[in-house]
């Protein structure tokens, strides 16, 4: 997982509340056996419409999604974050995120930044006034800057630290690798092993 401290990229206004994970990635894409390559699946049904924001220049090159409240509700599929990540989004801004989505985002190195709704609307205005305007999000001081908008976002310390260090769940556990190895040394010898094959 790549660490994030500051990210600057084109902002994409998704002026809609309650974007659920079924919209972010429809269920048909869940049968795949891979964990990457979901860029085509992101907002797949919406992208069939030419007027959808990601079908327009310069928004299609965006990396900061600015959405309405309650982003990521519905089914718990982690694929929703994979699709955003694979498309190239590093940051999603919204005034409220569904809990599971929020947790999944952090696990996959995507910053879900909580910004107050009035500020989200000011950012939308900036992005529409000048399509292609870049947004700078800094985890160092928890700020969002976009044109004339200069505001802050909310994030808990633990998630912030993980994102800045680029630590996924597994790397966090592997910080205890010595403890795991010590534990393994004390396991009783009668515990079964699958190898070598005995049948």
């Amino acid at each position: 997982m790549e660490p994030i401290t500051t990210h600057t990229g084109i902002g994409v206004p998704l002026k809609q509340g309650n974007v659920d994970t079924d919209q972010i990635i429809p269920a048909v894409y869940l049968k795949r056996v891979t964990k990457t390559g979901f860029d085509d699946a992101l907002f797949a049904s919406w992208r069939k419409k030419p007027e959808f924001i990601l079908n327009q220049e310069p928004y299609r090159h965006g990396s900061v999604l600015v959405a309405g409240p309650d982003f990521g509700t519905g089914s718990s599929r982690e694929h929703a974050v994979w699709a955003l990540r694979d498309y190239g989004f590093k940051v999603v801004i919204s005034s409220r995120f569904a809990d599971i989505f929020y947790g999944n985002a952090a696990k996959n190195g995507v910053l879900a930044a909580k910004v107050a709704q009035p500020d989200v609307e000011l950012i939308w205005k900036e992005l529409e006034k000048e399509p292609g305007t870049e947004i700078t999000v800094s985890l160092e001081d928890c700020t969002v800057r976009c044109g004339s908008v200069d505001t802050t976002f909310d994030i808990d310390n633990y998630t912030r630290w993980r994102l800045m260090e680029g630590l996924d769940d597994i790397s966090l556990t592997l910080r205890h690798e010595d403890a795991i190895t010590r534990f393994e040394e004390t396991r009783p010898g009668f515990k079964p092993k699958t190898l070598p094959v005995k049948v």
Partner: peptide, 23 residues
């Protein structure tokens, strides 16, 4: 942090997990 003595795997829920290791 809990140690796991036995991990059983089947075809439906494991592909992305192995892929994650590879990546």
């Amino acid at each position: 942090l809990i140690y796991i003595d036995l991990h059983m795997v089947h075809e439906v829920t494991s592909p992305q997990a192995f892929e994650g290791l590879r990546l």
